[in-house]
């Protein structure tokens, strides 16, 4: 009985000491606060251009797509995609594509307007994304992630 009680209390003690030691490594309050939403002025982004803004230490690509780019993104058969998602699921307004600019392979920053599909090309291990930010070729398993965002006016976008 005493052995079991000692063992049980000991296990709780070890756990309650270990948890703070592990948990302190997670993002602290100031890091989380610095991840607050940011605004982007859309009127300054010409058609065809990609603007990179920094949010939570990561680049966010805001791409003003041309009609040709939109057409390419819409017309691809879903069955040919490694991570099937329609273009409509990835954008709120077809001209504006907003994605986190971090390659879903190992985190490098892909280069815009490059690669076989003219979306993005990652120089690190050769992943190619299309004009909807979807993975088409290479080792990356997933499409470029879409952050949460909203159009707060005709010319203003809020990310976060």
């Amino acid at each position: 009985m005493l052995f079991i009680a000692t063992g049980a209390v000991g296990a709780v003690a070890v756990g309650s000491v270990a948890w703070p030691l592990i948990s302190q490594m997670n993002p602290d309050a100031s890091t989380i606060a610095a991840g607050a939403p940011i605004d982007v002025d859309l009127s300054a982004i010409a058609e065809g251009a990609i603007v990179t803004v920094k949010w939570r230490g990561k680049p966010i690509f805001v791409r003003h797509r041309t009609p040709k780019e939109i057409k390419e993104a819409v017309e691809v058969p879903l069955s040919s995609l490694p991570d099937p998602q329609s273009d409509a699921q990835r954008v709120k307004k077809p001209e504006w594509l907003v994605v986190i600019g971090v390659c879903t392979h190992l985190g490098c920053i892909p280069l815009g307007h490059q690669g076989e599909y003219e979306g993005w090309f990652c120089p690190c291990h050769g992943s190619a994304y299309d004009t909807s930010g979807r993975i088409r070729k290479g080792p990356a398993p997933k499409n470029l992630e879409v952050p949460s965002y909203a159009f707060t006016s005709d010319t203003k976008l809020t990310i976060g």
Binding site: M25, N26, P27, G107
Partner: peptide, 9 residues
């Protein structure tokens, strides 16, 4: 995220 202590290095 735990390794980084944030959302990126």
């Amino acid at each position: 995220t735990w390794l980084w202590g944030g959302y990126s290095v």
